[in-house]
Structures are given as C-alpha cells and as structure tokens.
C-alpha cells in the first residue's frame, strides 16, 4: 500500500502537497476534502496542486477544474492581504448590507471576487456568517464587524490602508 500512496505529481517538489497525499487514500471521493485543505493552506488552489491531485486521485484535470469552479469556497487566484467579505444573506440584506457592498466596491474600485492590483484587498460576497443578531455584518480576514454602516466600513478601510 505504501507505494500507491506516493503522489507522482509532487514528490520532492512541495512538502505540503506530499503530506496531503500521505494523509488521504488515493480515491476520488477525497477530492473535495483535499481541495478544502489546499484552499486553506495557499488561500487559493494553485495549478500545481490541481495537477498533483489529478495525478494522485487519477481524476482528469478538467473534472477537478469543474469541481473548483462549482464551489464558491474554492478560488483560483490568491486573495488580498485583507479579504473583506460582506454578508449578503437575507437578514443582512434586509438591514442594508447591499449599501455596504456598493461602498466597498466603490472604495476599492474592484468587483466582488477580485483583488486590488497591489494585492492588499480583495472583496468577497458571503451568504450568512451566522452573526444575524449583528446584521448587517462584514468580515476582514474572518473577524466580524457587526451592526455595520458605511461610515464604519470607511473607518476600517482607512485603518487597514494606513497599516503597513
């Protein structure tokens, strides 16, 4: 069995991918589990990881690409240093989160799913982070800012913008 657990695509190239392949059996069912770990580790799913998984799980790359582009958690490009996510779940929407999203796009001059040229900020649309009691909310790298207003967003962006 030891032999089959070797990942032909990445051996000796990337310690993370090698470890990942050791952790999971080479069966297709594990694809999403493994992609979740890749996304977590790199912040996106790089091509080399797609190729390594394709070799290891014997799944064509087109199918892996199809899975990555199906699930919104997986991204193909690295996110910004500060990933700002605005909740557009119903509870937040009803409390005006769209205005916050609009303002965010206006400030950063990028669309949802994009990263600023300097790699500092990226925008994400999320559906319910579970803090409905604090609606509307946005998060920066996972930290929740509740009862958000456009002013609060501006303030947070200003602070992050100055930090370096």
């Amino acid at each position: 069995m030891g032999e089959t657990k070797r990942c032909p695509g990445c051996t000796g190239k990337d310690p993370f991918l090698e470890e990942l392949c050791k952790k999971y059996e080479p069966i297709k069912d594990n694809l999403i589990q493994m992609l979740n770990e890749v996304q977590e580790h790199y912040g996106y799913v790089p091509t080399k990881a797609q190729q390594a998984l394709s070799d290891y799980l014997k799944v064509p790359m087109a199918e892996i690409y199809g899975v990555i582009t199906f699930y919104s958690r997986f991204t193909l490009k690295p996110k910004g240093k500060y990933n700002v996510a605005v909740c557009l779940g119903t509870a937040c929407f009803v409390k005006g989160s769209q205005k916050i999203m609009d303002r965010l796009k206006e400030r950063l001059k990028i669309e949802a799913g994009e990263t600023t040229k300097d790699g500092k900020f990226s925008i994400e649309e999320t559906r319910c982070v579970g803090a409905c009691g604090l609606a509307p909310v946005f998060t920066v790298n996972g930290e929740v800012y509740g009862k958000a207003t456009v002013q609060k967003l501006d303030q947070v962006l200003d602070e992050l913008g100055e930090k370096e």
């Binding site: 297709k28 589990q33 979740n36 899975v67 699930y71």
Partner: peptide
C-alpha cells in the same frame, strides 16, 4: 465529517450525496 465548500444546492439531498462522492454538487 465531510465539509461542504459553498454551494447552496448541496442542501438538496442528492446533490449532497454527489458532493460527498467528491463531485460537483
């Protein structure tokens, strides 16, 4: 435990099964 990866449709039972099997939901 199997983790979903951000697709509302996976709440539909057969889509969920597809997802557990490592496929598009």
């Amino acid at each position: 435990v199997r983790l979903g990866a951000g697709a509302f449709v996976c709440g539909e039972e057969t889509a969920l099964l597809e997802s557990i099997e490592g496929k598009r939901g």
